[in-house]
């Protein structure tokens, strides 16, 4: 067994966001695909008028992009349909969390 200690870890957050190119690489896509996600509203950018090189993404954005990529790859859905599926999926999770919070599940 080889032991190796790592010191540089980064928690993806508002102060340490991902760039569009980093988000694209993390999901096995290219920056043009990330731009499409912004266009269909799967990813929301506060400064959408700024060029993609200046966009910043959070952990939630990475999770959304991963899910969209899998829907596209595994089910062949287009990004508009993926956006709707993800909205419904998040609503289901929010409602399940609300049930949990009230001790109903």
């Amino acid at each position: 067994m080889v032991n190796f200690t790592l010191t540089s870890t980064t928690a993806i957050s508002a102060s340490q966001p991902l760039a569009a190119s980093e988000l694209a690489h993390a999901v096995g896509a290219d920056t043009a695909w990330v731009v499409q996600l912004v266009e269909v509203g799967i990813l929301r950018i506060e400064t959408a008028e700024a060029p993609p090189e200046r966009w910043e993404f959070s952990s939630t954005d990475l999770q959304c992009a991963l899910e969209a990529r899998r829907l596209e790859r595994d089910f062949g859905v287009n990004l508009d349909a993926a956006a709707l599926i993800l909205d419904l999926q998040h609503e289901v999770r929010r409602l399940k969390a609300a049930l949990h919070a009230h001790g109903l599940r």
Binding site: T5, L6, T7, T9, T10, A11, I12, S13, S59, T60, L62, Q63
Partner: peptide, 15 residues
């Protein structure tokens, strides 16, 4: 050896 920064939440990614 992974350093977990304080304040991480479920669904957050550590890179």
């Amino acid at each position: 050896s992974v350093k977990i920064p304080p304040g991480v939440h479920p669904g957050q990614f550590i890179r």
